[in-house]
Simulated scan of single mutants.
Amino acid sequence: MKCLIIDDEPLAVDIIEAFTEKIPFLEVVKTFNNALDAFVFLNSNKVDLLFLDIEMPNLTGVEMVKSLQNSEVQVIFTTAYSEYALEGFNLNATDYLLKPIAFPRFLKAVNKAKEKFEAKQENISTQNTVQNNQTTSLPEYIFVKSEYENLKINLSEIVYIQGLKDYIKIYLKNADKAILTLSSFKEILKKLPVNFLRIHRSYIVNVDFINSVQKSKVIIEKQRIPIGETYKEEVFEKLGI
């Protein structure tokens, strides 16, 4: 975690910097003796954690945090004044250390910051994975083999799919007849994006074409397609019903 130490007392800066050197996951990027210079630095540099004194000239630590409220940087206040504790926590500070700071208490505070940092990174990673999966699972078309040729089908034109033992029938918008192809539901589902929903052991529907949903049926272009009992709960949940 990249961090800044901001304190108008040089001795306090030295103590905190010495503490951070004992902790492998902390990297002190820079130290400041006033909050104003640190604020300018943060406008063009990203860090993860601030060790921030409160009583400083020109710009107090509290004023600085209020100016950084849209920032995701964590703050650990370091001060000799306990009366600021409540205000510190109202500003969502990760922790509040009273001077003189003992190393065990310092370690507890930075471990708390580390947990929050790792949780945030994990959340970002999960979101990126979901976005990547959605991106890779949203092709514009698929090819299916029908009789003696491979047909290109635009996914946006698929209304619903019906399973018939070893075959499936793909019903397209404004098409005179369905396309019959040798495939299983398992195989075709791998090719379909998230707007396709299996509602029955024999039916997959394109959610974009659903006109209405009844207790046990989905209405798509005047077609009444059954919802299987084993699929009901998942179907209603995904449709937000």
Rank of each mutant, 00 (worst) to 15 (best):
N123W: 02
Q127C: 00
F185E: 06
S202F: 08
R201W: 08
I219A: 08
P104K: 14
I124Q: 00
A18L: 12
E21C: 08
K112D: 05
L42Q: 04
I15R: 05
D48S: 15
I124L: 07
T129N: 00
F196G: 05
V205K: 09
I170N: 03
F41A: 11
I188W: 02
A12S: 13
A18E: 15
D176P: 06
Q223G: 01
V130C: 02
T135G: 13
S82Y: 02
K120R: 12
K190M: 13
K114W: 02
S71E: 11
I101N: 02
K191V: 04
L151E: 04
Y84P: 02
K232E: 14
N43Y: 07
C3E: 01
Y231N: 11
L91M: 14
I219G: 02
N133D: 12
M56R: 05
K120L: 00
I153L: 10
L172R: 11
N43L: 04
E72W: 07
Y231E: 10
L197R: 10
A80Y: 01
E234W: 03
F185L: 09
T126P: 00
K2I: 03
K66Q: 14
E147W: 04
R224A: 09
Y81C: 08
A109E: 06
V205W: 06
V235Y: 05
N33F: 00
Y96P: 04
N211F: 08
N34Q: 12
F103G: 11
I199G: 03
L42A: 08
F143N: 08
A119K: 04
Q69Y: 12
E140I: 03
V73H: 01
I210R: 11
L68F: 11
E63M: 07
E63D: 15
N132L: 13
F32D: 00
I15P: 04
V28H: 00
F236H: 09
S44W: 11
A18C: 14
E233F: 09
I23L: 08
V13I: 07
S71C: 10
K112M: 13
L4T: 12
